[in-house]
Computed example of a mutant assay.
Amino acid sequence: MAAGWIEKVTGSLEQKKQYRAYKARIERLPANYRTAAEALDRYLMYYGSIAAGDTLLSMLDDLADLFEQCAADRTPIREIVGDDPVEFAETFLRNYAGGQWINKERERLTAAIDRAEADEAGAS
């Protein structure tokens, strides 16, 4: 019972554990891969604005998987992200767009315009 109340206040405890596990995975990467992964993490957090915890964790797990595999294969960083790391990050993020907070605002905008149109038709 207490766990349910705590999670309402602080968020999912399971997701917090998963996030800490992701951070530990990134921390274990060789320095150059860790630096690149942390930079991508930061950019994705700011640019992505993912509000759905499960989507965010899925994205971060996939990012960790990618860098762990590339580190194991000794894939050069530029072969991972290409010449434009911003383009790479934004393309990577598109796979997780369903969890972005902006989707809620898009729905809200569409509904408001639909209501305005209905009001306009009713006034005619």
Rank of each mutant, 00 (worst) to 15 (best):
Y33R: 03
Y33A: 05
Y33N: 05
T35H: 11
T35K: 15
A36K: 11
A36W: 00
A37V: 09
E38G: 02
E38A: 10
E38H: 01
E38R: 13
A39Y: 03
A39V: 03
R42K: 11
Y43N: 07
L44T: 07
L44E: 06
M45P: 00
Y46S: 05
Y47L: 02
S49N: 14
S49V: 01
S49Y: 04
I50N: 02
A51M: 06
A51Y: 08
A52D: 10
A52E: 05
A52C: 05
G53L: 02
L56T: 05
L56K: 12
L56A: 06
L56H: 03
L57Y: 02
L57G: 07
L57D: 01
S58W: 07
S58I: 00
L60A: 02
D61L: 04
D62S: 09
L63Y: 09
A64M: 04
F67P: 05
Q69W: 00
C70M: 10
C70Q: 14
C70K: 13
D73Q: 13
D73Y: 06
D73K: 12
D73A: 15
R74W: 00
R74Q: 14
I77Q: 07
I77A: 08
I80P: 05
V81E: 11
V81L: 13
V81D: 05
G82S: 05
G82T: 09
D84Q: 08
D84M: 06
D84I: 01
V86E: 13
V86I: 15
E87W: 03
E87Y: 11
A89E: 02
A89T: 06
T91K: 10
T91N: 09
F92A: 01
F92G: 00
F92K: 04
L93Y: 06
R94Y: 03
N95H: 11
Y96D: 05
Y96P: 07
G98A: 07
Q100L: 00
Q100T: 14
Q100G: 08
Q100C: 06
I102Q: 14
N103L: 12
N103T: 08
N103I: 13
K104T: 11
K104M: 10
K104Q: 09
E105Q: 12
R106K: 15
R106L: 15
R106D: 11
E107Q: 14
E107S: 12
E107P: 00
R108K: 15
R108Q: 10
R108G: 00
L109D: 08
T110C: 01
T110L: 15
T110N: 11
A111K: 15
A111R: 15
A112L: 13
A112D: 10
I113C: 02
I113D: 02
D114Y: 04
A116I: 09
A118F: 04
A118R: 15
D119E: 11
D119F: 05
E120I: 01
E120L: 11
